[in-house]
Amino acid sequence: MSSATASWRTWLTSRSPRSRRQAWLGQAYLGWLSLLRNPVALLGLAIVLLLVLTAIFAPLLATHDPLAQDLAKRLSPPGTAGHWLGTDEFGRDLWSRMVYGARVTLYIVLLVVATAPVFGLAIGTAAGYFGGLVDVVLMRLTDIFLAFPRLILALAFVAALGPGIGNAVLAIALTAWPPYARVARAETLTVRNSDYIAAEQLQGFGAWRIVTGHVMPLCLSSVIVRITLDMAGIILVAAGLGFLGLGAQPPLPEWGLMISSGRKYLFDQWWVATVPGLAIFVVSLGFNLLGDGLRDVLDPRSASR
């Protein structure tokens, strides 16, 4: 067994990998090792995993139905029998709502991540690879979007589209893509003139294949770092929209919305607003810590930043 692990390690850390997959896995292994040496990043990873597990196993973790009202027990303080984090103004169990809130947060984050970076990556690589007029037009567009106030613009979008979680996601995605386009363009420019791209071109491969097969994968590590660091921002904006009543709508257990309803009882029943805020804080902190660590691993050039 131990000799098998040892040979695996030799294979992974080989300085002359035989295949692309071996090289890739070897890089991933080294990255994993250096992530292991960074306890703060590991803490971040643990928090993010905790969020995912909480979302998956919400029905098992929750002690109550997150929507079940019990007006007799409304605004019970933490420590009340059966409600260890207390209840809200409708007597709903705060712990259960917080647990189910992980699902809402994860849902928003995943939707944004599935759209904005992809769009940004496409714009950025196209601008960087084709250069010339394409570059000028796309980048001017990106710059214009970058210069906009993100939160206010998302707000305006939702104002026009009508409140709701889907529109909130759309609004966030519409304002979140430009930084990805910038990162991707910068990365593309550094590889565009390299010899192996020239070799591909000489072999007659088309732009589409080169961009998707070679340029985009090279941008991935910087984009992943950006996504992780952006995640906290996305969570905060989504919570902000929820807080203003423009994102998730009641009775959905969205953390921002929960803070907003707890605001009315702030001075007498502090826990209603405090508990969901702590959840947002911990999860955002997790993404930030992980993002910092990943940046050190995947993007050593900007490690000191």
């Binding site: 906290a232 921002g256 947002i280 804080f281 810590l289």
Partner: peptide, 22 residues
Amino acid sequence: GLFGYSMPVFWLGLMGLLLFYG
């Protein structure tokens, strides 16, 4: 610094009101 990047501003404001005002 990271704490500042991770806390919703409206929540920190409410917590501030709760503690320093309330």
